[in-house]
């Protein structure tokens, strides 16, 4: 294995006196889907917030490719270095068309490796196809159904061909069939030059797609390994899965 995409070490995030992340360490490899699971309030979203620069950490470090120290960057620079994130609460631009939404996913054509308007258009079409919203491209995003919004947001973060993709609960609120399709989509997104971090509460879904899971509890790592082993781990069963 080469250098990990993201290395988190000793990361602490504090809200007042409360530690949402408490000296957390974690490595995310390229070519893998790395799932973060854990009970509500474990700090999963907070970790994504810290990586994407929305929340400041009070200690520890996060590095990209072992080079860039992300805790010192703002969210724009972090995004421009190839890290994209889908929010837990679906965040699409409802007043814009589906197509415009996807187009916004490409802040700079050069950085996404695209030359000329036609290349950009092609990338947009391709993304629309991948998420299955090509038919809806002229509609306003606000008119889409919940599942479609989830996919649209995945499309937005996918459009720039990110190196690191973070998905916060992409199948929450979806029907079984939609979940199925999302799973297929996720596996398609796997790529040797891309690391995917997946936060999910749907254990079967995680088991289907994840290569590796980290179980968080109260801001610390409780378990790290495969989902199958996680299901057998007594600590994990205690705090999260239940008997």
């Amino acid at each position: 294995m080469g250098t990990p995409a993201i290395v988190v070490s000793g990361l602490t995030v504090q809200f007042g006196s409360f530690r949402a992340l408490d000296g957390l360490s974690l490595a995310v490899e390229y070519g893998q889907i790395h799932a973060l699971i854990g009970p509500n309030g474990a700090g999963k979203t907070t970790l994504l917030d810290a990586i994407s620069g929305i929340t400041r950490s009070s200690g520890g470090s996060i590095s990209l490719n072992g080079l860039t120290e992300l805790t010192r960057c703002n969210e724009v620079d972090i995004a421009l270095s190839g890290i994209r994130r889908k929010f837990q609460k679906p965040s699409v631009f409802e007043a814009l068309s589906v197509r415009d939404n996807i187009a916004l996913g490409i802040p700079s054509a050069r950085q996404a490796g695209l030359v000329g308007q036609s290349a950009i258009d092609q990338r947009i079409e391709a993304t629309l196809d991948v998420i299955g919203l090509a038919e809806q491209s002229a509609r306003l995003a606000g008119e889409l159904a919940h599942g479609q919004k989830q996919w649209l947001e995945i499309g937005i973060v996918l459009a720039s061909d990110p190196k690191v993709l973070m998905l916060d609960e992409p199948v929450a609120g979806l029907t079984d069939e939609e979940t199925e399709r999302t799973g297929v989509l996720l596996r398609k997104l796997k790529h040797p030059a891309r690391a995917i971090i997946l936060v999910e509460h749907d254990m079967d879904f995680v088991e289907q797609v994840a290569d590796r899971v980290t179980v968080l509890h109260e801001g610390k790592t409780l378990f790290e390994g495969s989902m199958k082993n996680a299901r057998l781990d007594p600590g994990v069963i205690d705090v999260y899965l239940g008997r």
Binding site: A79, R84, E94, D100, I156, S160
Partner: peptide, 18 residues
């Protein structure tokens, strides 16, 4: 389009690299 996006959700737009 970017302006409207910024109006509706600035944090989102920033995390897309704007």
């Amino acid at each position: 389009a970017i302006m409207i996006a910024c109006r509706d959700d600035e944090t989102r737009l920033r995390t897309l690299g704007y």
